[in-house]
Design a protein around this nucleic acid. Structure first.
Length: 788
DNA sequence: GCAAGGTC
C-alpha cells in the first residue's frame, strides 16, 4: 500500500512527514523536487510539497501581442490553464502512477483547495486511485494526526471558486491595463504601464479619497481659552468649558471677564475608576497593522516573517480572518508552556486566576484560529531557526499579544476637576494607572499617567497663566499603512495575505509612495483615479471587488454554478469597459498630460516651473524661429515668456528671483535672466541676488577682491576698481570651499579634467585628473612657505 | 509587458 501526500509547500511536507513518521523519514528527490518517505503500519508514505500554484491562466498565444488585438477581445476569450512549474508536474506523474491513495494536504482555504486540485488534475492523468483531503490549520502534531485519521472528500466548489476568481481577475486586469497603457503611450512618449486591477485600483482609490479631503480642506479659525493652575507645588492646565470657540468676539468677551484673575476655586471633583480591556486575538490584518504601528515593519515584511515563524513551528498559521478562539481551545496548556522563561510573570499571573479565559473578537472566517505562539521560545531559538531580521520582534509581539489577551483589564483612576474662575468653568482631567493588568505584558501600548494635585472642593488654586489663543482647524492627515490595511480589510480588498502586495504594486507603478509610515499619492496616481472616478466610478471603489467576491462566494457555497458565475462576472466587466471606451479621449488626455508634465519636470535642462495660468509645466522650447518658455498645456494654455536671443542658457536652480520671476537662468557666463522679469542687470535687486564672489581684502586699497569670470579669461579684481588684480588657475571648475585658517581668505577647490596647469593633457589623466584645493591668496603663508 | 493568488 502506497500513500502519496501533496502539501502546499516543501517546508510543510517536511513538518508533516516528521509528525506522521515520528521523526523516522528519509529524503529523496524526484525531478529535483524533495519528497519525504517513510513506512508506517505496513504502508509506504511519500509526501511532496508543491510551490503554491503550479498552474496558471493565460490568454492563448495569438492574443499575447498587445498591439495585435483589441483589448476588448480579451473579455470574450476564455483564458487557458497550463502548467507553470513543469518539474512539479513531472514529479506528480511519477509519484502517482503507482499510488494506492492520494491525500491533498494543502492549506485549508480557497487557494489551498485549488492548489490541491491542480495536483489532483495532474494525478488523474496517471492514476484512478481514491483522492482524499486532510484538513488542518496548524502544523501541530495533534492537529496533523487528527486530520490524517479523519480524511474528508476534496471540496470541488471551494476549488472552483478560486478558479472563477483567477479568470475574472485576469480578464479585467489584462483588458483594462492594455487599453489604458496603449492609449496613453500613443499620446505621451512613455514606456510606463498604466495598470488596473480589482484590488490594486481600489487600494489606490482609498489614498486618492483621502488626498481629495486634504486638498479640499478649508481651515477655520478658532480660539481656545486655557489656564495654568498651581496647587501644592504642582502645575496643571485646564481648558475653558466652551472648548474650541469659533467666534472671536465670544472668546474675547469670556476672556475679558476673567483676565487678571489670580485664583480659582475647585467647584466639583469626580473620581472614577475606568478599565481598558485587552485587545482581541490577532488575525492577519490586525497583526500587520500592529507590526507596522508598533514595530515599524512593513506589511510585506511582517507577513514574510510570520510565514517563516509558522513554518518553523513557532507560531500558528499567519493567514487568518478569525479573531476568536474555538470553545475547546486549551489555553491552560498553552500558557503552562510559558510558565518558565521570558514571559514567566505574565503566565503565572494568568494561571493564578483560573479558569483561563480570553477576550474574544467577533470575526470568524471558519478558516484558522487567531495567530498565537505554538510554543515558548527564546530570542536565540528564533534567531537560530528564522534568519530574517526582526523575526524575534515579531514573535515577541505575537507571544505578548497572546498572553495579554488572557490577562485582566487595566484599571485607571480618572479624575475630573471643575475649576471656577469668576463665573467661568475650566475643566481638567487626570489619569493614574492603578493596575496595569494586560498592559504589563504589552509594552507597545503606552499609557502615561497624568497626575493632578490632591485638592478638596471649595479649595483655592493659584492661576499662573491665562491665555486666549487663536488656532486653526487642521486638514485630515495622510493615511498610514496601518490605516490603509484597515480600509482594505473592512472593504474586502485582497485577502489577508495579499493586502501588502497591493500596496507594493501601487508604489511600483508610481501611483503613491510611502514616507515613513504615511502614504502620499503621486501625480500619476491622482490623475488616473480622478479620470476613472469621473468615467467608471465603481473602479475606484471597493464595490468592484466585492461584486466579484460575492459571485465566487456563491460558487464556494454551492449556490451558483461555475459557468454562471463566470458569465455574470464577465457582464459586469464588459459594462465597466464600455464606460471606459465612451470616455476614452478625456481620460487619456488627462493621464498623458500628467505623464508628460512629469517628464518635463524630470528634464532638468529645460524645466522652468509651474505655469501660473493653468498649473501645468513651463519649459524652454527651441524652434527654428527662436526660443521661448512655453506651457505644456498648449494649446489650451497659450502662456509664453521671452528668452534672450543669444548665449547658452542654464537654469540656476539655487537662485530665486526676488521680483516674482518663475526661474533664474544664466546666460553664457555674462549675466542672469529671470523668466518673466527680463535681464537681471536691469533689476533693482541685482546686487542682492548676485553679490560678487568676494574672496578677501584688497592688499592695495579698502576694497575687496572678487572672482571676475570673463569669456576667455578669469582673475581676481578689486571691487573698488583700484586696478589691483591677481591671476587664477586657467583650467578647471572653480568653487569656493570655505575659509583659509592661516590668512582668512577663501579657499578654492579646482576640479580638473585630465589637463595640467598649463592646459596640456597629462600623461595619465585617470590618475592625475581630480580635485585639488588651495588658498586663493598668493601671499598666504600656506603658499609662500613662510610662517604666519 | 497585463491581475491576484500561492510560494522561494
Amino acid at each position: 500500500m502506497s500513500i502519496v501526500v501533496f502539501t502546499e509547500k516543501n517546508k510543510a511536507a517536511a513538518q508533516i512527514a516528521g509528525i506522521l513518521s515520528e521523526g523516522g523519514f528519509s529524503r529523496a528527490s524526484i525531478e529535483g523536487v524533495p519528497v519525504y518517505d517513510f513506512k508506517k503500519d505496513g504502508k509506504e508514505w511519500r509526501i511532496m510539497g508543491l510551490s503554491g500554484h503550479i498552474m496558471g491562466y493565460d490568454f492563448p498565444p495569438e492574443l499575447n501581442n498587445w498591439r495585435g488585438c483589441d483589448p476588448s477581445v480579451l473579455l470574450d476569450t476564455p483564458p487557458v490553464k497550463t502548467v507553470t512549474k513543469q518539474p512539479f508536474a513531472s514529479a506528480i506523474a511519477l509519484l502517482c502512477s503507482g499510488a494506492d491513495q492520494i491525500i491533498l494536504a494543502c492549506d485549508f482555504d480557497r487557494e489551498g483547495e485549488n492548489i490541491g486540485f491542480e495536483a489532483k488534475s495532474l494525478a488523474e492523468k496517471v492514476s484512478n486511485c481514491p483522492m482524499k483531503r486532510a484538513r488542518f490549520s496548524t502544523l501541530s502534531p495533534g492537529e496533523i494526526k487528527q486530520a490524517f485519521s479523519n480524511l474528508v472528500e476534496p471540496d470541488v466548489n471551494l476549488a472552483m471558486s478560486a478558479e472563477a476568481r483567477q479568470i475574472l481577475d485576469l480578464k479585467m486586469g489584462a483588458a483594462f491595463t492594455r487599453f489604458l497603457t496603449l492609449a496613453v503611450q500613443q499620446r505621451a512618449r512613455t514606456k510606463e504601464i498604466i495598470s488596473i486591477g480589482p484590488c490594486q485600483t481600489p487600494t489606490c482609490g482609498f489614498v486618492y479619497e483621502r488626498e481629495k479631503l486634504i486638498r479640499d480642506f478649508k481651515s477655520k479659525d478658532f480660539w481656545k481659552i486655557e489656564a495654568t493652575f498651581n496647587h501644592s507645588g504642582i502645575d496643571f492646565t485646564g481648558m475653558h468649558r466652551s472648548g474650541h470657540i469659533h467666534d472671536k468676539a465670544k472668546a474675547d468677551e469670556i476672556f475679558s471677564r476673567i483676565k487678571g484673575s489670580k485664583t480659582g476655586i475647585l467647584v466639583k471633583k469626580s473620581v472614577k475608576e475606568s478599565t481598558t480591556s485587552p485587545p482581541y486575538p490577532l488575525n492577519t490584518t490586525e497583526f500587520l497593522k500592529r507590526a507596522s504601528k508598533f514595530l515599524g515593519i512593513s506589511p510585506e515584511n511582517a507577513l514574510e516573517i510570520a510565514e517563516q515563524l509558522y513554518l518553523s513551528g513557532f507560531t500558528s498559521y499567519p493567514r487568518t480572518e478569525t479573531n476568536k478562539y474555538a470553545d475547546d481551545f486549551d489555553f491552560q496548556a498553552k500558557v503552562l508552556g510559558f510558565a518558565s522563561g521570558e514571559y514567566r510573570e505574565y503566565a503565572l499571573a494568568i494561571l493564578s486566576k483560573p479558569p483561563v479565559t480570553c477576550r474574544n473578537g467577533t470575526r470568524d472566517g471558519h478558516d484558522h484560529p487567531p495567530i498565537y505562539p505554538i510554543k515558548a521560545a527564546t530570542k536565540a531559538d528564533i534567531e537560530k531557526s528564522v534568519r530574517i531580521p526582526d523575526a524575534w520582534k515579531v514573535y515577541d509581539l505575537v507571544a505578548r499579544h497572546f498572553l495579554a489577551n488572557l490577562m485582566q483589564p487595566a484599571v485607571f483612576e480618572k479624575t475630573h476637576l471643575e475649576i471656577g474662575v469668576k463665573e467661568e468653568i475650566f475643566d481638567t482631567t487626570g489619569s493614574v494607572m492603578k493596575d496595569p493588568g494586560w498592559l504589563a505584558a504589552y509594552p507597545f501600548e503606552t499609557k502615561n499617567d497624568k497626575f493632578l494635585p490632591d485638592i478638596a472642593v471649595k479649595e483655592e488654586v493659584v492661576i499662573k497663566k491665562l491665555s486666549n489663543t487663536k488656532s486653526q482647524t487642521t486638514p485630515p492627515k495622510r493615511l498610514t499603512e496601518a490605516e490603509l490595511l484597515t480600509l482594505m480589510d473592512k472593504n474586502g480588498i485582497g485577502t489577508k495575505a495579499t493586502a501588502p502586495s497591493h500596496i507594493e504594486t501601487n508604489k511600483k507603478r508610481g501611483y503613491f509612495e510611502t514616507k515613513g509610515k504615511t502614504i502620499s499619492i503621486l501625480d500619476t496616481g491622482f490623475t488616473l483615479m480622478e479620470a476613472l472616478d469621473s468615467s467608471v466610478p465603481i473602479l475606484v471603489k471597493p464595490a468592484v471587488r466585492s461584486r466579484i467576491e460575492a459571485l465566487i462566494q456563491e460558487v464556494e457555497d454551492g449556490k451558483k454554478g461555475f459557468e454562471d458565475a463566470l458569465e455574470e462576472g464577465s457582464v459586469l466587466i464588459r459594462d465597466m469597459y464600455s464606460h471606459l471606451i465612451t470616455n476614452k479621449d478625456q481620460i487619456v488626455r488627462n493621464i498623458a498630460g500628467t505623464i508628460t508634465d512629469e517628464q518635463i519636470a524630470a528634464d532638468k535642462k529645460n524645466f522652468i516651473g509651474q505655469c501660473p495660468e493653468c498649473g501645468r509645466m513651463l519649459r524652454m522650447v527651441k524652434t527654428d524661429n527662436g526660443r521661448f518658455v512655453g506651457c505644456s498645456g498648449y494649446s489650451d494654455c497659450r502662456k509664453t515668456y521671452p528668452l534672450p536671443k543669444e548665449g547658452a542658457l542654464t537654469v540656476a536652480r539655487s537662485k530665486e528671483c526676488k521680483n516674482a520671476g518663475i526661474a533664474v537662468l544664466k546666460v553664457g557666463t555674462k549675466y542672469f535672466w529671470s523668466v518673466g522679469v527680463g535681464p537681471c542687470f536691469k533689476c533693482e535687486h541685482e546686487k542682492e541676488c548676485f553679490p560678487p564672489d568676494v574672496v578677501g581684502p584688497c592688499p592695495k586699497c579698502e576694497g575687496s577682491m572678487f572672482i571676475l569670470e570673463m569669456k576667455e579669461n578669469r582673475f581676481l579684481a578689486c571691487t573698488r576698481k583700484c586696478g589691483h588684480t591677481q591671476s587664477l588657475p586657467k583650467e578647471g571648475k572653480l568653487t569656493i570651499a570655505g575659509e583659509c585658517e592661516q590668512c582668512g581668505w577663501k579657499r578654492l577647490s579646482i576640479k580638473e579634467t585630465g589637463k595640467d596647469k598649463k592646459g596640456k593633457a597629462v600623461a595619465n589623466p585617470e590618475k592625475e585628473a581630480g580635485v585639488r584645493e588651495l588658498c586663493i591668496n598668493l601671499r598666504c603663508p600656506s603658499r609662500t612657505g613662510r610662517k604666519a
